[in-house]
Design a binder for these strands. Structure first.
Lengths: 148, 148
DNA sequence: GTACATAGTGAAGTAGCTTCACTATATTTG
DNA sequence: CAAATATAGTGAAGCTACTTCACTATGTAC
């Protein structure tokens, strides 16, 4: 066994559940939630974002972004700065502690990957990625179908 | 690329996010949530369960199980029956519609697996499972460490 | 049979999220 | 350029999934 589709499929779901639980736990120790971490990740990548774009990227309502940024700002991880061209909009940028958190996230991700998967053959990892991509292709396809 | 640990690791997280989203969506169309589906799955497997054991299996508070069973009962998927030996406890069992829902879940799972992964070589699926197991081993280990 | 543990539930509260209504500013258009 | 319309953000209110705490009813142990 373990070469059958259903086994791999079930394994993927188990992985999904445990991984997000583990992630949640690691983030909690740093005083973060998945959502807040996502904001930090997006800001680290983009440099600065308007709340509207954050809502788009996060797939949540603009109203909720307000709250997210509120608490992130209270925690000193981001700051609201005036948008250079649009006085309605708010530029959200990482503070230095926020940027350090982003670096920690990256470091942690790479370290975990190396620790957990470092000694597996590249062929296994490549096969894993192939199967994962196949599943991803189908779930994102389904998503688009529902959107139209 | 794609043979590197970090790529597989990131892929696993993307898989986790998309898969639970896809799951949530499929369940919504049947009027279920992940939690309610989990209850149905557990009941289908065990035959009957006391709410206390459900709370244990779900990893949530007994109080929350009360609410979960309330709505599931309103929807006609489960029923509360007196526990044969303990008058404090409640035996929760699936109704016929509940059992049918459980069968639908199983069918849907198998069909999806076949559709999505059916034509991939068994060696890829086996490699996928190996990598998934490696990750699972680490996250559950971490969980136990934190527990002690 | 008194003391203590356990199963379930009401009441109240938290976190994450939504919609709706409103203000302030931008953009379009006649 | 003035009027109409669209857009960025936020307050208010509300929903869902969950928790803890206090309480009742029952079971178990000494």
């Amino acid at each position: 066994m373990d070469g059958k589709p259903i086994d791999a499929f079930d394994k993927a779901f188990e992985l999904a559940a445990r991984l997000s639980e583990a992630m949640r736990q690691a983030l909690t120790e740093r005083g973060l939630t998945e959502r807040r971490a996502e904001v930090i990740y997006l800001l680290a990548r983009a440099g600065a974002l308007v709340q509207r774009d954050l809502a788009e990227a996060l797939g949540c309502s603009p109203r909720h972004v307000t709250g997210l940024i509120d608490t992130l700002q209270q925690d000193g991880l981001v700051k609201r700065t005036p948008h250079p061209a649009d006085r309605r909009a708010v530029h959200v940028v990482l503070t230095e502690p926020g940027a350090e958190t982003a670096r920690w996230m990256t470091r942690h991700r790479h370290d975990s990957a190396r620790t957990i998967l470092g000694d597996l053959p590249a062929t296994d990892l490549a096969a894993f990625t192939r199967v994962a991509d196949r599943i991803l292709g189908h779930v994102t396809q389904a998503k688009r179908e529902n959107r139209s």
